[in-house]
Protein backbone atom coordinates (compact mmCIF):
# COMPACT_ATOMS: atom_id res chain seq x y z
CA UNK A 1 0.00 0.00 0.00
CA UNK A 2 2.78 2.41 0.84
CA UNK A 3 4.39 1.71 -2.52
CA UNK A 4 1.10 2.52 -4.18
CA UNK A 5 0.55 5.73 -2.28
CA UNK A 6 4.10 6.74 -2.95
CA UNK A 7 3.61 6.44 -6.68
CA UNK A 8 0.01 7.58 -7.02
CA UNK A 9 -0.85 10.98 -5.59
CA UNK A 10 -3.66 10.88 -3.06
CA UNK A 11 -6.03 12.49 -5.56
CA UNK A 12 -6.04 9.25 -7.55
CA UNK A 13 -6.66 7.10 -4.47
CA UNK A 14 -10.47 7.26 -4.45
CA UNK A 15 -10.66 6.45 -8.17
CA UNK A 16 -8.27 3.54 -7.71
CA UNK A 17 -10.43 2.43 -4.79
CA UNK A 18 -13.50 2.55 -7.04
CA UNK A 19 -11.85 0.34 -9.64
CA UNK A 20 -10.72 -2.04 -6.93
CA UNK A 21 -14.29 -2.24 -5.66
CA UNK A 22 -15.54 -2.80 -9.21
CA UNK A 23 -13.04 -5.57 -9.91
CA UNK A 24 -13.74 -7.12 -6.50
CA UNK A 25 -17.53 -7.17 -6.89
CA UNK A 26 -17.21 -8.46 -10.41
CA UNK A 27 -14.70 -11.06 -9.24
CA UNK A 28 -17.08 -12.25 -6.53
CA UNK A 29 -19.78 -12.61 -9.16
CA UNK A 30 -17.62 -14.54 -11.59
CA UNK A 31 -16.42 -16.90 -8.86
CA UNK A 32 -19.88 -17.63 -7.55
CA UNK A 33 -22.00 -17.70 -10.67
CA UNK A 34 -21.42 -19.45 -13.88
CA UNK A 35 -21.82 -17.27 -16.90
CA UNK A 36 -21.14 -14.09 -14.91
CA UNK A 37 -17.70 -13.31 -16.23
CA UNK A 38 -18.71 -13.11 -19.85
CA UNK A 39 -18.22 -10.22 -22.21
CA UNK A 40 -21.96 -9.94 -22.64
CA UNK A 41 -22.55 -9.39 -18.92
CA UNK A 42 -20.06 -6.53 -19.05
CA UNK A 43 -21.70 -5.21 -22.21
CA UNK A 44 -25.09 -5.40 -20.52
CA UNK A 45 -23.75 -3.30 -17.67
CA UNK A 46 -23.15 -0.57 -20.20
CA UNK A 47 -26.42 -1.18 -22.09
CA UNK A 48 -28.57 -1.02 -18.97
CA UNK A 49 -26.77 1.99 -17.55
CA UNK A 50 -25.98 4.08 -20.64
CA UNK A 51 -28.31 6.88 -19.53
CA UNK A 52 -26.93 6.81 -16.01
CA UNK A 53 -23.39 7.15 -17.34
CA UNK A 54 -24.36 10.27 -19.29
CA UNK A 55 -26.18 11.64 -16.26
CA UNK A 56 -23.19 11.00 -14.01
CA UNK A 57 -20.94 12.78 -16.51
CA UNK A 58 -23.02 15.96 -16.24
CA UNK A 59 -23.28 15.63 -12.48
CA UNK A 60 -19.50 15.30 -12.26
CA UNK A 61 -19.06 18.78 -13.77
CA UNK A 62 -21.45 20.30 -11.24
CA UNK A 63 -20.00 18.47 -8.26
CA UNK A 64 -16.46 19.39 -9.32
CA UNK A 65 -17.37 23.05 -8.82
CA UNK A 66 -18.77 22.23 -5.40
CA UNK A 67 -22.40 22.51 -6.52
CA UNK A 68 -25.16 19.95 -6.78
CA UNK A 69 -27.94 19.34 -9.30
CA UNK A 70 -31.07 17.68 -7.97
CA UNK A 71 -33.03 18.29 -11.15
CA UNK A 72 -31.38 15.70 -13.39
CA UNK A 73 -33.85 12.85 -12.81
CA UNK A 74 -36.80 15.10 -13.55
CA UNK A 75 -35.13 16.52 -16.64
CA UNK A 76 -34.66 12.95 -17.88
CA UNK A 77 -38.39 12.38 -17.42
CA UNK A 78 -39.22 15.68 -19.12
CA UNK A 79 -36.97 14.79 -22.04
CA UNK A 80 -38.65 11.42 -22.56
CA UNK A 81 -41.99 13.19 -22.40
CA UNK A 82 -41.08 15.92 -24.89
CA UNK A 83 -39.57 13.38 -27.24
CA UNK A 84 -42.57 11.07 -27.07
CA UNK A 85 -45.12 13.87 -27.38
CA UNK A 86 -43.32 15.58 -30.24
CA UNK A 87 -42.93 12.33 -32.14
CA UNK A 88 -46.61 11.56 -31.60
CA UNK A 89 -47.41 15.00 -32.96
CA UNK A 90 -45.56 14.04 -36.10
CA UNK A 91 -42.26 15.85 -35.65
CA UNK A 92 -39.38 14.19 -37.46
CA UNK A 93 -36.71 12.60 -35.29
CA UNK A 94 -33.97 14.93 -36.56
CA UNK A 95 -35.93 17.87 -35.18
CA UNK A 96 -36.96 16.22 -31.93
CA UNK A 97 -33.43 15.43 -30.81
CA UNK A 98 -32.06 19.00 -30.96
CA UNK A 99 -35.29 20.35 -29.47
CA UNK A 100 -34.96 18.08 -26.44
CA UNK A 101 -31.27 18.87 -26.01
CA UNK A 102 -31.98 22.60 -26.26
CA UNK A 103 -34.73 22.39 -23.66
CA UNK A 104 -32.48 20.61 -21.18
CA UNK A 105 -29.65 23.07 -21.72
CA UNK A 106 -32.02 26.02 -21.36
CA UNK A 107 -33.30 24.70 -18.03
CA UNK A 108 -29.70 24.28 -16.90
CA UNK A 109 -28.89 27.80 -18.01
CA UNK A 110 -31.84 29.17 -16.10
CA UNK A 111 -30.79 27.41 -12.89
CA UNK A 112 -27.16 28.37 -13.33
CA UNK A 113 -28.02 32.03 -13.76
CA UNK A 114 -30.22 32.07 -10.66
CA UNK A 115 -27.49 30.32 -8.64
CA UNK A 116 -24.72 32.59 -9.82
CA UNK A 117 -26.46 35.95 -10.15
CA UNK A 118 -28.71 35.83 -7.12
CA UNK A 119 -26.49 33.68 -4.96
CA UNK A 120 -29.25 31.27 -4.01
CA UNK A 121 -27.98 27.87 -2.85
CA UNK A 122 -27.71 25.31 -5.69
CA UNK A 123 -29.62 22.85 -3.53
CA UNK A 124 -32.76 24.98 -3.44
CA UNK A 125 -32.58 26.21 -7.03
CA UNK A 126 -32.15 22.74 -8.49
CA UNK A 127 -34.83 21.45 -6.15
CA UNK A 128 -37.16 23.97 -7.74
CA UNK A 129 -35.87 22.85 -11.13
CA UNK A 130 -36.68 19.28 -10.15
CA UNK A 131 -40.26 20.21 -9.32
CA UNK A 132 -40.60 22.34 -12.42
CA UNK A 133 -39.37 19.68 -14.82
CA UNK A 134 -41.41 16.93 -13.20
CA UNK A 135 -44.49 19.13 -13.20
CA UNK A 136 -44.03 20.10 -16.86
CA UNK A 137 -44.11 16.39 -17.76
CA UNK A 138 -47.63 16.20 -16.42
CA UNK A 139 -48.58 19.42 -18.15
CA UNK A 140 -47.81 17.61 -21.40
CA UNK A 141 -49.54 14.44 -20.40
CA UNK A 142 -50.44 12.61 -17.24
CA UNK A 143 -50.38 9.28 -19.05
CA UNK A 144 -47.45 7.37 -20.41
CA UNK A 145 -46.90 8.13 -24.12
CA UNK A 146 -45.39 5.34 -26.16
CA UNK A 147 -42.90 6.00 -28.93
CA UNK A 148 -43.73 4.49 -32.32
CA UNK A 149 -41.44 6.56 -34.49
CA UNK A 150 -39.51 4.20 -36.82
CA UNK A 151 -36.20 6.05 -36.49
CA UNK A 152 -36.31 5.85 -32.70
CA UNK A 153 -37.40 2.24 -32.78
CA UNK A 154 -34.65 1.33 -35.21
CA UNK A 155 -32.07 3.07 -33.04
CA UNK A 156 -33.40 1.38 -29.94
CA UNK A 157 -33.49 -2.16 -31.31
CA UNK A 158 -30.38 -1.95 -33.47
CA UNK A 159 -27.28 -3.58 -32.10
CA UNK A 160 -23.62 -3.54 -32.95
CA UNK A 161 -21.59 -6.70 -32.91
CA UNK A 162 -18.20 -6.56 -31.28
CA UNK A 163 -15.49 -9.18 -31.68
CA UNK A 164 -16.23 -12.18 -29.51
CA UNK A 165 -19.92 -12.21 -30.25
CA UNK A 166 -20.68 -9.45 -27.77
CA UNK A 167 -23.45 -7.11 -28.85
CA UNK A 168 -24.01 -3.58 -27.66
CA UNK A 169 -26.61 -0.95 -28.46
CA UNK A 170 -26.16 2.44 -30.09
CA UNK A 171 -26.88 4.06 -26.74
CA UNK A 172 -23.65 2.61 -25.36
CA UNK A 173 -21.69 4.26 -28.17
CA UNK A 174 -23.38 7.59 -27.49
CA UNK A 175 -22.68 7.31 -23.77
CA UNK A 176 -19.02 6.49 -24.35
CA UNK A 177 -18.67 9.40 -26.78
CA UNK A 178 -20.16 11.65 -24.09
CA UNK A 179 -17.60 10.37 -21.60
CA UNK A 180 -14.76 10.97 -24.04
CA UNK A 181 -15.91 14.50 -24.83
CA UNK A 182 -16.33 15.27 -21.15
CA UNK A 183 -12.87 13.97 -20.32
CA UNK A 184 -11.45 16.09 -23.15
CA UNK A 185 -13.24 19.21 -21.95
CA UNK A 186 -12.30 18.70 -18.32
CA UNK A 187 -8.65 17.95 -18.85
CA UNK A 188 -7.64 19.67 -22.05
CA UNK A 189 -9.55 22.93 -22.17
CA UNK A 190 -9.27 26.08 -20.10
CA UNK A 191 -12.95 25.79 -19.26
CA UNK A 192 -12.35 22.35 -17.78
CA UNK A 193 -9.33 23.36 -15.77
CA UNK A 194 -11.26 26.36 -14.45
CA UNK A 195 -13.98 23.94 -13.31
CA UNK A 196 -11.37 22.25 -11.12
CA UNK A 197 -9.96 25.59 -9.98
CA UNK A 198 -13.39 26.87 -8.93
CA UNK A 199 -13.98 23.68 -6.98
CA UNK A 200 -10.56 23.91 -5.36
CA UNK A 201 -10.96 27.49 -4.25
CA UNK A 202 -13.36 29.89 -5.87
CA UNK A 203 -11.80 32.97 -4.34
CA UNK A 204 -8.33 31.91 -5.46
CA UNK A 205 -9.62 31.25 -8.96
CA UNK A 206 -11.09 34.74 -9.07
CA UNK A 207 -7.87 36.30 -7.80
CA UNK A 208 -5.98 34.39 -10.49
CA UNK A 209 -8.10 36.23 -13.00
CA UNK A 210 -10.07 33.19 -14.21
CA UNK A 211 -13.60 33.55 -15.55
CA UNK A 212 -15.38 31.89 -12.67
CA UNK A 213 -18.86 33.18 -13.42
CA UNK A 214 -18.93 31.62 -16.86
CA UNK A 215 -17.85 28.29 -15.42
CA UNK A 216 -20.34 28.35 -12.56
CA UNK A 217 -23.22 28.88 -14.96
CA UNK A 218 -21.67 26.64 -17.61
CA UNK A 219 -21.60 23.50 -15.51
CA UNK A 220 -25.35 23.67 -14.98
CA UNK A 221 -25.86 24.07 -18.72
CA UNK A 222 -23.69 21.01 -19.27
CA UNK A 223 -25.59 19.09 -16.61
CA UNK A 224 -28.87 20.13 -18.22
CA UNK A 225 -27.61 19.05 -21.65
CA UNK A 226 -26.40 15.71 -20.28
CA UNK A 227 -29.73 15.16 -18.53
CA UNK A 228 -31.56 15.78 -21.81
CA UNK A 229 -29.20 13.42 -23.64
CA UNK A 230 -29.68 10.83 -20.93
CA UNK A 231 -33.41 11.39 -21.31
CA UNK A 232 -33.17 10.59 -25.02
CA UNK A 233 -31.22 7.43 -24.24
CA UNK A 234 -33.77 6.54 -21.60
CA UNK A 235 -36.60 7.03 -24.08
CA UNK A 236 -34.81 4.60 -26.37
CA UNK A 237 -34.48 2.17 -23.47
CA UNK A 238 -38.16 2.43 -22.46
CA UNK A 239 -39.64 3.47 -25.82
CA UNK A 240 -42.04 5.73 -24.00
CA UNK A 241 -42.30 9.12 -22.37
CA UNK A 242 -43.72 9.26 -18.88
CA UNK A 243 -43.73 11.73 -16.01
CA UNK A 244 -42.88 8.98 -13.55
CA UNK A 245 -39.80 7.84 -15.42
CA UNK A 246 -36.46 8.17 -13.66
CA UNK A 247 -37.90 8.98 -10.23
CA UNK A 248 -35.00 9.35 -7.82
CA UNK A 249 -32.43 8.92 -10.55
CA UNK A 250 -30.65 12.08 -9.35
CA UNK A 251 -29.69 10.13 -6.26
CA UNK A 252 -28.24 7.31 -8.35
CA UNK A 253 -26.24 9.85 -10.31
CA UNK A 254 -24.96 11.57 -7.16
CA UNK A 255 -24.16 8.21 -5.60
CA UNK A 256 -22.26 7.14 -8.72
CA UNK A 257 -20.20 10.33 -8.68
CA UNK A 258 -19.39 10.01 -4.97
CA UNK A 259 -18.60 6.31 -5.21
CA UNK A 260 -16.53 7.26 -8.25
CA UNK A 261 -14.24 9.21 -5.99
CA UNK A 262 -15.34 12.81 -6.44
CA UNK A 263 -15.42 15.07 -3.43
CA UNK A 264 -18.82 16.69 -2.90
CA UNK A 265 -17.03 19.79 -1.67
CA UNK A 266 -15.57 20.15 -5.16
CA UNK A 267 -12.25 20.21 -6.93
CA UNK A 268 -11.44 16.51 -6.84
CA UNK A 269 -12.74 13.81 -9.15
CA UNK A 270 -12.66 12.31 -12.61
CA UNK A 271 -15.27 11.49 -15.21
CA UNK A 272 -13.74 8.04 -15.53
CA UNK A 273 -14.28 7.61 -11.80
CA UNK A 274 -17.95 8.43 -12.19
CA UNK A 275 -18.25 5.85 -14.99
CA UNK A 276 -16.61 3.32 -12.69
CA UNK A 277 -19.08 4.39 -10.03
CA UNK A 278 -21.98 3.64 -12.35
CA UNK A 279 -20.45 0.28 -13.19
CA UNK A 280 -20.09 -0.57 -9.50
CA UNK A 281 -23.76 0.26 -8.91
CA UNK A 282 -24.70 -1.76 -12.01
CA UNK A 283 -22.60 -4.75 -10.96
CA UNK A 284 -24.23 -4.81 -7.55
CA UNK A 285 -27.61 -4.86 -9.24
CA UNK A 286 -26.52 -7.66 -11.58
CA UNK A 287 -25.05 -9.63 -8.70
CA UNK A 288 -28.26 -9.38 -6.75
CA UNK A 289 -30.31 -10.48 -9.72
CA UNK A 290 -27.94 -13.43 -10.32
CA UNK A 291 -28.24 -14.38 -6.68
CA UNK A 292 -31.97 -14.68 -7.11
CA UNK A 293 -32.85 -15.15 -3.45
CA UNK A 294 -31.56 -11.74 -2.43
CA UNK A 295 -34.15 -9.10 -2.99
CA UNK A 296 -33.69 -5.93 -4.97
CA UNK A 297 -33.79 -3.68 -1.92
CA UNK A 298 -30.38 -4.95 -0.92
CA UNK A 299 -29.11 -2.85 -3.81
CA UNK A 300 -30.09 0.34 -2.00
CA UNK A 301 -28.59 -0.78 1.27
CA UNK A 302 -25.34 -1.79 -0.38
CA UNK A 303 -25.19 1.53 -2.24
CA UNK A 304 -25.75 3.34 1.05
CA UNK A 305 -22.93 1.40 2.68
CA UNK A 306 -20.63 2.09 -0.28
CA UNK A 307 -21.46 5.80 -0.10
CA UNK A 308 -20.58 5.78 3.57
CA UNK A 309 -17.33 3.95 2.95
CA UNK A 310 -16.25 6.46 0.32
CA UNK A 311 -17.28 9.46 2.38
CA UNK A 312 -15.25 8.20 5.31
CA UNK A 313 -12.30 7.38 3.03
CA UNK A 314 -12.36 10.92 1.68
CA UNK A 315 -12.60 12.45 5.15
CA UNK A 316 -9.48 10.51 6.06
CA UNK A 317 -7.64 11.76 2.95
CA UNK A 318 -8.72 15.34 3.60
CA UNK A 319 -7.70 15.18 7.24
CA UNK A 320 -4.31 13.74 6.43
CA UNK A 321 -3.36 16.42 3.93
Amino acid sequence: MTALTARAPSRFLPVIATFVVFVATFGVGSLRYEGFATGQVVANLFIDNAFLIVLAVGMTFVILTGGIDLSVGSVVALSTMIAAAALRAGWPAWLVVPAVLATGSALGLLMGVVIHRFQVQPFIVTLAGMFLARGLCFVISVESVSIKDPTFRALATGTLELPGGVTITHTVVIALVAVAVAAYVLHLTRFGRTVYAVGGSESSARLMGLRTGRVKVGVYVISGFCSALAGLLFSLYMLSGYGLHAVGMELDAIAAVVVGGSLLSGGVGFVVGSVAGVLVLGTIQTLISFQGTLSSWWTKIVIGVLLLAFIVLQRLIVRRS
Binding site: R11, Y184, H187, L188, T189, R190, R193, T194, Y196, A197, G199, G200, S201, S203, S204, A205, L207, M208, G209, L210, G267, V268
Partner: peptide
Protein backbone atom coordinates in the same frame (compact mmCIF):
# COMPACT_ATOMS: atom_id res chain seq x y z
CA UNK B 1 -1.83 31.50 -0.78
CA UNK B 2 -4.38 32.23 -3.51
CA UNK B 3 -3.84 29.05 -5.47
CA UNK B 4 -5.83 25.87 -5.94
CA UNK B 5 -4.32 23.11 -3.85
CA UNK B 6 -6.20 20.43 -5.78
CA UNK B 7 -4.34 21.16 -9.02
CA UNK B 8 -0.75 20.43 -10.02
CA UNK B 9 2.12 22.83 -9.58
CA UNK B 10 2.35 23.38 -13.34
CA UNK B 11 -1.33 24.18 -13.61
CA UNK B 12 -1.22 26.59 -10.72
CA UNK B 13 1.60 28.46 -12.38
CA UNK B 14 -0.04 28.65 -15.79
CA UNK B 15 -3.78 28.45 -15.13
CA UNK B 16 -5.57 30.75 -17.55
CA UNK B 17 -2.58 31.04 -19.90
CA UNK B 18 -1.78 27.42 -20.64
CA UNK B 19 0.06 26.73 -23.89
CA UNK B 20 -2.42 25.29 -26.37
CA UNK B 21 -2.26 23.28 -29.52
CA UNK B 22 -5.29 23.12 -31.81
CA UNK B 23 -7.37 24.51 -28.94
CA UNK B 24 -6.40 21.77 -26.50
CA UNK B 25 -4.10 22.37 -23.59
CA UNK B 26 -0.68 20.99 -24.41
CA UNK B 27 0.27 19.22 -21.22
Amino acid sequence: VALCANLTVAENILLGREPRRFGAING
